[in-house]
Nucleic acid binder design. Structure first.
Lengths: 277, 277
DNA sequence: ACTTTAAAGTGTCAATACGACACAATGATA
DNA sequence: TATCATTGTGTCGTATTGACACTTTAAAGT
């Protein structure tokens, strides 16, 4: 009997058994100790993490100095995880936050999409326990968008990226692969779901001014809204509590602060805010 | 030199090479002729194919006599296909139709979801060229909904199902795995996208009456709409052409027929029909 | 042949929502 | 203390909505 030891994923284990069966007619016994984390082949996920700061929508991005390229934070699916669990892990690692608002919005599966991933070489060089076979595969990626409170985030790079930082959607940024396309689709989904997902609640701090909420809406929708009509409409939903408190310190008249009335907000989102049929 | 021949997928080929490398230090040359269609492991897709007939929304379902269970038409992703291409293949096979309206709406990835798939035994028994290893895997499935014109569909079972037929959403049907959940989510997406996707156009025949269109909306939304107000609103979008033609044969006053004005319809959908901000 | 019936075509009206805009109050800054 | 941009709070005319009424029509019933 020969004994050989090396790290191997569940999939390879499974297939080894299969191959052994086919090749050697079951006469080979293979015993493998499984160490390390195993991921499903072919499947990845990418997160478009939105934050709102100084009147701009921003996205958390990893940067690779040597490549001069950005990428979205992403990850793989553990063999015992759901996509959502795997995405929460990514978010926790990049932002330090738990229980982030997360929503999958599209799968990107073009055959061409993961050809020539410039990161593969970096990954395999930086960590010898990872075999390049995993990364050389074709990947189908599930796009998630996440909404976080900008100031609570502690941007943290992963082991192959040089930095992790917020980038504005107005900047021209070079992303790897189809990540620019993924961001555009995420923004489009955000827009479409503005009336059915708790978007305001998750992007703003607990207390905020009416102007801050309005600018958020303007940014997501990409158009200006009349200050007075906006306030009238949003107040008519009964989803905000007006506080007896003002934002001090800024120039000019100090505005009142508001908070979401969570109970009413969730009720309203279930029906969809306003309109249509 | 020993030569062995058997069918094998690209993945297994890849991994065989990897295993050979690890186990035998590259001293084993493996030459494999690849035959048959190869699929990506772990990933499947399921289609909720909606049709509209006699005032009811229906879903195309496969039935397994021996199990007394239904399932959604589904399939796997060829190693050179995108998800959308693979879904079109499934739809073509089950309905006979090309260029069907298709939209992915969610990925279902719960770890527990594909445990004990009652079809695995059936599949492997019915076709000896398929190895059960592929089906024994954990599967993540991408949910698509499709919209088709009921009368154009020629429901066709696949090689393991006994029949393929329309089932009403009002019936209580037992589906395998999480397929009931997938259908509910599909319906919910349909509802949410009623104003941004060409749903009326794809579910109705070219010419239809105002009542037929209204009942479709009522069915999708799950509530009654005022006949007169509905007509006023839908006509205000300028997306319908009123034809100089009536539906004869029914009792009572014969209604006018309408058709979609495709140019205006698509323009209107881009902005979203009506409303909100 | 006449009546019945239920669906279809068309319209009214009050209530509400919406878009556009006016004006006074405020509070740091000059 | 004057300035000025921002905030709070409106108003007004118009467009949209919801609720409902009346007439017309084609097949089915007698």
């Amino acid at each position: 009997m020969i004994q050989i030891s090396f790290e191997i994923s569940n999939e390879i284990h499974h297939l080894l058994l299969f191959c052994a069966h086919k090749l050697f007619n079951k006469k080979l016994a293979i015993s493998i100790t499984n160490t390390g984390k195993n991921f499903l082949n072919h499947i990845s996920l990418d997160c478009v993490i939105f934050g709102f700061h100084e009147g701009e929508l921003k996205v958390l991005s990893l940067f690779y100095e040597s490549l001069k390229l950005h990428s979205l934070p992403g990850g793989f699916i553990g063999v015992n995880e759901s996509l959502e669990e795997a995405a929460q892990v990514v978010l926790k690692e990049r932002t330090g936050l738990d229980a982030i608002f997360l929503k999958q919005f599209q799968v990107f599966s073009d055959f061409e999409r993961s050809k020539q991933n410039p990161l593969v070489e970096k990954i395999t060089k930086s960590n010898t326990t990872i075999n390049s076979d995993f990364f050389d595969q074709r990947f189908i990626t599930v796009g998630f968008y996440a909404l976080v409170e900008y100031t609570k985030v502690n941007p943290t790079p992963d082991f192959i990226s040089d930095s992790c930082k917020w980038v504005s959607l107005n900047e021209k940024i070079d992303f790897i692969l189809d990540h620019s396309k993924i961001i555009n689709k995420a923004l489009q989904s955000l827009r479409e779901q503005l009336n059915s997902q708790p978007i305001g609640y998750n992007l703003l701090p607990d207390k905020f001014t009416m102007s801050e909420l309005r600018v958020l809406y303007e940014t997501i929708l990409g158009k200006e809204l009349d200050r007075r009509n906006f306030q009238r409409k949003i107040m008519s939903y009964n989803i905000l509590n007006k506080l007896n408190e003002r934002r001090k310190g800024g120039a000019h008249k100090s505005p009142f602060l508001f908070e979401f009335n969570l109970e009413n907000y969730e009720k309203a989102l279930n029906d969809g805010l306003q309109g249509g049929w």
